[in-house]
Design a protein around this nucleic acid. Structure first.
Lengths: 160, 160
DNA sequence: CGCAGTGAGTCAACTTGTTGACTTAAGGTG
DNA sequence: CACCTTAAGTCAACAAGTTGACTCACTGCG
């Protein structure tokens, strides 16, 4: 395990996602990616494709390609409303809502149980506080100027 | 920003990676993905493809496909040693080593500066401690039994 | 020697995402 | 009304990973 916080974060996320994926596959036969799409939609519905893409952190083209299959399989609905340009509003079906609620509840419970497990009692994690710290850090990074060539101190001309 | 720690972690990682990618593109003309490959190799060289793939969290096929281009561009060397089956040992060239050292140093410095920036002074982050906590949590999740169908409490038969 | 087994790497087919060009519906302005 | 401009979605080409089948070098054992 690494001593570098950034490496640790990547490893933690990978483990978390793998765990969630296993649980979702076993309990509901869906992937984590699938669940994530519906869960983010749940928090924002009804929402147009472009906005949902931003929330998911992918391009609108990626969302556009996934929508037909999700509608086909009865997870979401897509409705274009007159007078709103080409905008298409996405919403969850009852089936989609039930998945997000039920699976989401289970995942949150499992994760909360991990955080309070006795094996971590040596230095227990204060989840709300850590969350607040990481939210603040994330917001700060977002504000950082994209480091242009000048912001980096020794561009390696010697390498080329 | 979310109140759920798992969401916050994903958002933080996305911001961190985007920041690192900008810095690397601006300063060295390489992507974060490229840097990450070399940085992990740096910590393990010389190493065969299969082991490196496990360290990177990808399949050996993915590594196998990237190697020719990396050799071609002078970042790494690939040497198959007699008497070791089909194993191929990967190492960094001087150019690759210099990139990992120089860019890695800049990235670490930038990240450390973020962690200690006055704007986070309200509840400063104790990086070593947080790292230790997250390492412990990661290790714990790895030990978790992959949650089979029985481990999930209410598989939604009512949904199908 | 001959030959099945193992482990590393590679290949083809597929998945999921990105980019940049394109289409189309509104909206504003002459 | 005619003409840009803008914004949303879609498409084709490409990029990077995965899976499962395959090749090949070595190993052990009869």
């Amino acid at each position: 395990m690494s001593e570098r916080l950034t490496f640790t974060l990547h490893e933690l996320i990978a483990e978390l996602d793998a765990f969630a994926d296993s649980a979702l596959q076993a309990g509901w036969g869906v992937t984590f990616n699938h669940f994530q799409f519906l869960a983010v939609l749940y928090d924002h519905e009804p929402v147009d494709m472009t906005t949902l893409a931003r929330c998911l952190g992918v391009t609108k083209a990626a969302v556009s390609k996934r929508v037909p299959a999700l509608v086909e399989d009865g997870w979401i609905t897509a409705a274009s409303q007159p007078g709103a340009g080409r905008s298409i509003l996405l919403s969850l079906t009852d089936k989609g809502t039930a998945l997000v609620r039920d699976a989401g509840e289970v995942l949150e419970r499992e994760f909360a149980a991990m955080l309070t497990h006795p094996s971590l009692a040596g230095d227990p994690i204060d989840a709300p506080r850590m969350n607040a710290q990481l939210v603040a850090l994330t917001a700060f990074i977002q504000q950082q100027p994209a480091p242009g060539p000048g912001a980096v101190h020794h561009p390696q001309e010697t390498l080329a």
